[in-house]
């Protein structure tokens, strides 16, 4: 408790897959629309260049992946759970532990290969945050720590 922790380093594989999937799909969509515009709507040839935008954004995301991991931290204090992340825009979330109602685990195929889960924290009002790429054993400990203690309505 009270130590500053980071997600497991293998979370970078999950993030890489997410970036490639999301921006790959956007690339195909934009390319398809621009080709349609070129062939059916007599659009100028340069509209196909719009397909480069998702490629550039995806490449930037991949380039800054390590920095993104480096900036992702979480900390459990006696009264709070604090999560910080973000490269260009820094996000910090502080959650009162006595307001946490339940803690879920999510995992995809890549996460399961590396024994990693995303820890999703819920209060009565909302889902307040997700800690990505936590080892299953540590995630179970986290859940026990966060769910212990008196809860308020």
């Amino acid at each position: 408790m009270d130590e500053l922790e980071r997600p497991d380093h293998n979370v970078l594989y999950i993030w890489k897959a997410e970036v490639l999937t999301v921006w790959g799909i956007w690339f195909l969509v934009v390319l398809g629309c621009s080709i349609f515009a070129l062939l059916k709507l007599d659009a100028p040839a340069w509209v196909v260049g719009f397909a480069a935008i998702p490629v550039i954004i995806g490449a930037l995301n991949l380039f800054f992946l390590n920095m993104r991991w480096n900036r992702w931290t979480f900390q459990i204090t006696p009264n709070t759970l604090e999560m910080s992340h973000g490269v260009v825009v820094r996000h910090r979330r502080i959650v009162a532990r006595n307001r946490i109602q339940h803690v879920d685990f999510n995992s995809g195929p890549i996460g399961r290969k590396f024994d990693l889960v995303h820890v999703v924290v819920h209060t009565a009002g909302a889902t307040v945050g997700t800690i990505p790429g936590v080892r299953t054993a540590r995630a179970e400990q986290l859940r026990t720590e966060l769910m212990s203690g008196q809860k308020s309505l």
Binding site: R90, R92, V95, G125
Partner: peptide, 8 residues
């Protein structure tokens, strides 16, 4: 319940 602090 919780606080969110955002800083560009």
């Amino acid at each position: 319940e919780n606080m969110a602090i955002t800083q560009p």
